[in-house]
Write a protein that binds this DNA or RNA. Structure first.
Length: 344
DNA sequence: ATTCTGACA
DNA sequence: TGTCAGCA
């Protein structure tokens, strides 16, 4: 296929296609004898993915990154492009849903108050803008692939980051108490160490991770687990889909606002009376003021509060507002589990 | 008629 | 990214 036909089919200009090629986004495009570019099927899929990534607001450079680590055989490459697109469509779908809700709120306000107070407009608009920014942030986290090769060694050796890893996973598996026939989701599944333990229960397991390299290894270790590329802020599954959700050593990577967004997403994909188990290391927070910095020696800078991220007031408040019963468990001082069960 | 490269907006 | 020029 020549460039003109392609541009018409994909709805972008020939200039844009050439530009992408020039920037290394389409490395495999062949030329005819007359210098004409000739596009094959794989180029088309790749281009389509590029367009989707662009529409999601990703910069050219970042797209290149996302499409680069392609040690994959041809058969899996197409699959990768499609998974990427599914993931992006999920984020876009959530965006649109959010906008629809915002609009609806404004209509409601207009109806009840006759006139729309300016601060309400600002409030809704700010909220919308904020949410969009938060969701777009996941792009920055797409270079997780390098870590994948050594991930399983890391969790053994880097005990600062993964304290009592094995015990924590075992504990989590016990807490979530999966039963046969249930469908569960592991968010940030990595190479499947947690989800793998749940397989013996007879439950059907799915996993989401940002890194296709991790998922590849997971697939090798546990062929039974269905995996999808995606992120915690836009879970690529329909509403009301899982009996339980687990997640280990993932939640702490999110900032407090992202954590709440993640909870909203988990809530969306969870069935009524669904349960959730979040496992992560306990983060020690120290509140250091300017005063203490100037007047105290380093050893005096006492750690003023120690708590699990999952015990953030905002997080606990969220669970209360959404009618979850929560229980918190400490494992060996350094790592904890938060078990939440939906009462609805 | 179509595509290509390069330059400039 | 759009557009335009000058070529093959």
């Amino acid at each position: 296929m020549k460039i003109n036909e392609l541009s018409k089919r994909l709805g972008i200009s020939t200039r844009t296609i050439r530009f992408y090629e020039q920037n290394g986004l389409l490395p495999s495009v062949q030329r005819e004898h007359n210098q004409y570019r000739i596009f094959v099927e794989e180029d088309i899929w790749r281009l389509q993915t590029i367009i989707a990534l662009r529409e999601a607001g990703m910069a050219i450079k970042e797209i290149k990154q996302a499409l680069e680590p392609q040690g994959l055989p041809d058969s899996q490459r197409l699959r990768y492009y499609l998974e990427l697109q599914r993931s992006l469509l999920t984020t876009q779908w959530l965006e649109m849903k959010r906008m629809a809700e915002t609009t609806e709120q404004m209509i409601d306000l207009l109806q009840t108050q006759q006139t729309l107070p300016i601060q309400e407009i600002y409030h809704l608009a700010d909220q919308a803008k904020h949410l969009r920014e938060l969701r777009q942030n996941w792009q920055d986290q797409w270079n997780f692939d390098q870590r994948a090769q050594t991930h399983d060694e890391d969790v053994q050796t880097r005990s600062e980051d993964y304290p009592h890893y094995e015990q924590a996973l075992t504990y989590t598996a016990e807490l979530i108490h999966a039963t046969s026939g249930e469908h569960g989701l592991d968010l940030g599944i990595g190479t499947g160490n947690l989800a793998g333990r749940l397989l013996t229960s007879g439950a059907h397991l799915s996993g989401v991770d940002q890194s296709q390299e991790m998922l590849k290894q997971c697939q090798n270790k546990f062929p039974m687990i269905e995996t999808r590329i995606g992120n915690v802020l836009a879970i690529p599954y329909p509403d009301n889909h899982f009996h339980f959700v687990v997640s280990s050593f993932t939640f702490n990577h999110l900032n407090p606002q992202q954590q709440l967004l993640a909870l909203t997403e988990i809530h969306r994909v969870l069935k009524p009376h669904g349960r959730l188990c979040l496992t992560d290391r306990i983060v020690v927070h120290s509140a250091i003021t300017d005063d203490s910095l100037s007047t105290s020696s380093a050893s005096d800078l006492g750690l003023q509060s120690t708590y699990h991220e999952l015990q953030h007031p905002a997080v606990l408040e969220w669970f209360e507002e959404h009618f979850y019963m929560t229980n918190y468990y400490t494992i060996e001082q350094e790592v904890g589990c938060l078990l939440a069960v939906s009462l609805h």
